[in-house]
Design a binder for these strands. Structure first.
Length: 883
RNA sequence: GGGCCCUUAGCUCAGUUGGUUAGAGCGCUACCUUGACAUGGUAGAGGUCAGAGAUUCGAAUUCUCUAGGGCCCACCA
């Protein structure tokens, strides 16, 4: 060691230092020589956004897997990217410009406004990259792709054109979800329903040419200006006879037909439905069936237009109030009932969504969805945990056509053109110079842009250069597509996973990934979703600043089990930070004994002692478990496995047992032990590295200055480190030490006070082992003298005792022992042992158990019975002698 | 209405093919400034595994029902 390690563990400096180092030294590059391939794409965060805990979890999962695969000899590629996030970004910049300059996008014009967004993207787009790097993401930055880069744009245009020419993309005037704030269409997936307390208004509609009235129930009286029919169920005896007659809509006095349609539920409301095809999905369908007129009564901002003269210019709420007032005056409002109902809100804008009829571009997804469905059913793409495939199926089962167009400016503009002279309409992959039909040069492009998820859907392809042949070659498309896996949250299974799956199957005839790992949601410590409105969000960057990224990642991994999100209490991170500190100090302890040594080396297992054989065996178990858990995406199990090895096995026992050796005068022995400690330390660093990359690299650098831990081989189970017998011996020894410590504590002996102990055992191996390791007993339990007797020997008088199956341990305590307390303690133990014994004996006396249980279980139970009764006997004898 | 998940120690959670003395971290209690670490050490207390029933020699684990909680989809004039 020529460098000395800092006294205090300070994650901040070393984390920053190492990320920079890794990046500059191309440590995240795929090793193309490796035969096994692992590839994965990062779900692209919004380019101008800020990372939240969900991202931190997402990145942690991916990075752990990626680092593990890389260390396990895979040709590993992780592709980073950022998303233009159409609506979110445009809305943000629009707001900013209005705030600062009091100008709308229309004041600036399309070209200037887009320039402003690009400027904003250039200015703030790198922030998200910085944050990803602070999380330690070991992705290949040369692959960094933005969804509006040239290649993704080409992919979008190519695919749109193909689907257009196949007739799958079509323009249609139909009812869509209209966001009244964004003033754009949005897709079904972007609509969120919230329960709102509303009212049921019962209104009388007069039947033309008679005194009869129809009582219509509605939650939205203000839409009556758009009514073009009143519908009843054709089987309804109450209203059957009215079908074919006409009703008069109140206020606007329009005469509309009374129609029969089986959609109408006779039980619901009054059994009489006002039909507003312009502003209700079901009514639109009814209108289609009956060829009804569609009247649009709303302006793009959601206010009422001139079709609703009486309330023109008012917003929906005001219009409702006023309409109700007018109805009251006319005595047509007959009843008002409280009613809870679901109201559509925009997922992004949180504004009210109005169903509105409008001309939009749609993608017919029926066949694509069917194929996606099948590919998961047939196991070509697996969800982990498996139950998430249900979510996928529920979306793919009966998909509505995807509304692709958005009335925005920021995004991929729809590549459809119309010839100004002959009006021919066509989609074109490249920028067209003339009309393919009449060769005129004056062309108008469709003003709308595509849903963000259209380009996201092509992400697994476009990030690998598709459809540009040269770029695909350069980026290794054939090697890395399809991806090995995807890591994401369940909230975007519809938005994203579904779309990627459909697109990839359509274009490549392969699903885009083998595995789709779905992690849970990070919530606050009370289990509430983190949200702006609750103000309970935790900023991962704050946590990193406070505790270090390694500790945060470790905490996230530790809490990331299957089937569950998790509730993040910052105090948990504190304990991970303490774990990092533990490792730091363990290294600080051993480092003075180490000699700097270049190159790989191995340790000899010849002549090593039992604790060393034990720790090597533990290392073996740990390596095996880590590989399994990481392969199974069990981040929680992996974290606790490595924690237990480092903390409970290595630090608490092996390091403690190494102290007398390291402080001894036998130089050869010191050297040998130091060598083994170094080996173990290197192994544990490698084991932990995928989860906590920075501290492991920092310590690694004290061993090897030139080589990064990133490219080391991940530990695996090795037969030469497996010593099962010695492992068992050592476990017995640990049990013995713990027992003595327990006895000492129970009689209130001072920690430093040396004691004498009497052991009673008939097991020769145990006796030998205690004898050979008596110096450890001194060190670990302050036993200055230990006598080993056969069980037939007499027990000491006033003493405290305890027993395992093999050995009885007595601490003679002349004058020190409080007999009453000792009796209580023994009685408690006897009680417990009796209960266990009874349990086991009951099994043995049950002939059904003896006949039917497998042999090894029977043997085990018999062994237990023997152990328990021996233990009980010893305890009872001692109790009698005390009394 | 359809579907998924959850209920285990005071708190957050493990417990993967049924057989464990049901585990961990945090918190709590007692003792300890022992030469890696007080961001520490040692020991300990704390659970009739939501409830009922069924299957089984044997259930925290499988099945059914009940209660409570969370989420998704569809729909409600």
């Amino acid at each position: 060691m020529d460098r000395e390690i800092e006294k205090n563990y300070d994650p901040k400096n070393l984390e920053f230092k190492w990320y920079k180092h890794w990046k500059e030294n191309n440590c995240f590059k795929a090793n193309k020589k490796n035969e096994k391939v692992f590839s994965i794409i990062m779900p692209p965060p919004n380019v101008t956004g800020k990372l939240h805990m969900g991202h931190a979890l997402d990145i942690m999962c991916q990075d752990v897997i990626v680092r593990h695969k890389r260390m396990s000899g895979f040709n590993t590629l992780w592709i980073p990217g950022t998303d233009h996030a159409g609506i979110a970004t445009q809305a943000k910049v629009e707001k900013k410009i209005f705030k600062e300059e009091k100008k709308t996008k229309h004041d600036l014009g399309r070209e200037e406004f887009l320039k402003r967004i690009w400027d904003w993207k250039e200015e703030y787009g790198s922030e998200i990259i910085n944050q990803l790097q602070q999380l330690g993401a070991s992705c290949d930055w040369d692959y960094l792709t933005f969804t509006m880069d040239k290649t993704p744009n080409r992919a979008v245009r190519k695919v749109f054109t193909q689907l257009y020419n196949e007739g799958l993309i079509y323009k249609d005037k139909r009812i869509i979800n209209w966001d009244t704030v964004l003033q754009s269409a949005i897709s079904d997936a972007e609509v969120e329903y919230k329960e709102i307390k509303g009212k049921f208004y019962h209104i009388h509609y007069k039947v033309e040419g008679s005194d009869e009235v129809l009582e219509v129930a509605t939650t939205r009286p203000e839409t009556l200006y758009g009514d073009t029919a009143v519908a009843v169920n054709p089987k309804d005896p109450r209203f059957k006879k009215l079908i074919g007659k006409y009703a008069i809509i109140p206020i606007c006095e329009r005469v509309v037909p009374i129609i029969g349609d089986s959609y109408v539920d006779m039980e619901l409301g009054t059994g009489c439905l006002k039909v507003t095809p312009g502003h209700d999905f079901n009514d639109f369908d009814i209108g289609k069936r009956h060829d009804l007129e569609v009247i649009n009564i709303l302006n793009p901002n959601g206010s009422l237009n001139s079709h609703a003269k009486a309330v023109e210019g008012l917003n929906a709420n005001e219009a409702r109030k006023k309409t109700v007032e007018i109805l009251k005056e006319k005595e047509l409002l007959v009843d008002v009932k409280e009613h809870k109902h679901q109201v559509a809100h925009g997922e992004r804008s949180d504004s009210i969504i109005e169903p509105m009829v409008s001309t939009q571009w749609f993608l017919n997804v029926k066949d694509m969805a069917k194929k996606s469905y099948q590919s998961v059913k047939k196991g070509k793409m697996d969800f982990v945990p498996k139950q998430w495939e249900n979510t996928f199926f529920s979306w793919m089962g009966e998909p509505r056509d995807w509304c692709l167009s958005r009335q925005l400016w920021w995004g991929h503009r729809i590549p459809v053109y119309q010839c100004n002279s002959c009006e021919y309409e066509f989609a074109f992959e490249a920028e067209p110079s003339e009309c393919p039909k009449c060769q005129a040069h004056q062309l108008s492009q469709d003003p709308d842009v595509l849903d963000t998820w259209f380009s996201s859907g092509l992400w697994p392809l476009s990030t690998l250069g598709w459809p540009n042949k040269e770029e695909m070659e350069e980026k290794g498309f054939d090697t890395y597509f399809p991806n090995s896996m995807l890591v994401t949250g369940f909230d975007i299974i519809f938005f994203w996973v579904a779309r990627m799956s459909m697109m990839s199957l359509k274009l490549m005839e392969k699903p885009p990934f083998k595995d789709v790992y779905i992690h849970g949601l990070v919530r606050d410590k009370q289990g509430r979703k983190m949200s702006k409105s609750l103000g309970n969000g935790i900023d991962p960057i704050d946590l990193i600043n406070q505790y270090g990224c390694d500790a945060m990642r470790f905490t996230l991994a530790n809490g990331c089990g299957h089937n569950r999100g998790f509730n993040l209490d910052p105090r948990l991170i504190e304990s991970s930070r303490n774990f990092m500190n533990k490792i730091w100090n363990a290294f600080r302890f051993i480092s003075p004994f180490l000699r700097r040594k270049v190159g790989n080396y191995s340790i000899s297992t010849k002549g090593i002692d039992v604790p060393t054989k034990w720790i090597l065996t533990e290392l073996n178990f740990t390596a095996r478990k880590m590989n399994k858990h990481l392969d199974d995406y069990r981040f929680d199990e992996a974290a606790s496995t490595v924690y237990s090895f480092v903390y409970d096995k290595f630090c608490s026992w092996y390091l403690e047992l190494s102290k007398p050796i390291l402080y001894s005068d036998d130089k050869a022995l010191v050297k040998e032990r130091a060598n083994i400690l170094r080996f173990l330390f290197e192994e544990l660093l490698k084991l932990l590295h995928p989860i906590s990359p920075f501290i492991t690299e920092e310590i690694w650098s004290y061993f090897y200055e030139e080589e990064s831990i990133i490219s080391q081989k991940y530990p695996v189970f090795k037969d030469q480190y497996q010593f099962e017998d010695d492992h068992e011996k050592m476990d017995h020894f640990i049990e013995l030490v713990t027992q003595i410590r327990n006895l000492r504590a129970s009689v209130g002996l001072k920690p430093k006070e040396k004691i004498e102990v009497q052991f009673f055992t008939d097991d020769k191996r145990t006796a030998d082992f205690i004898y050979e390791n008596r110096h450890y007993l001194d060190q670990l339990a302050q036993v200055k003298k230990g006598n080993i007797h056969k069980k037939e020997a007499g027990r000491p008088g006033k003493s405290t005792m305890s027993t395992t199956s093999l050995v009885e341990t007595f601490i003679p305590l002349e004058g020190l022992i409080d007999i009453d307390i000792e009796i209580i303690r023994l009685e408690k133990q006897i009680d417990k042992t009796k209960k266990e014994l009874e349990k086991v004996e009951k099994k043995i006396s049950n002939s059904n158990f003896m006949d039917r249980a497998p042999e090894e279980v029977v043997i085990e139970v018999k062994m237990k019975a023997k152990d328990f009764s021996a233990k009980l006997e010893a305890l009872e004898k001692n109790l009698i002698s005390l009394k």
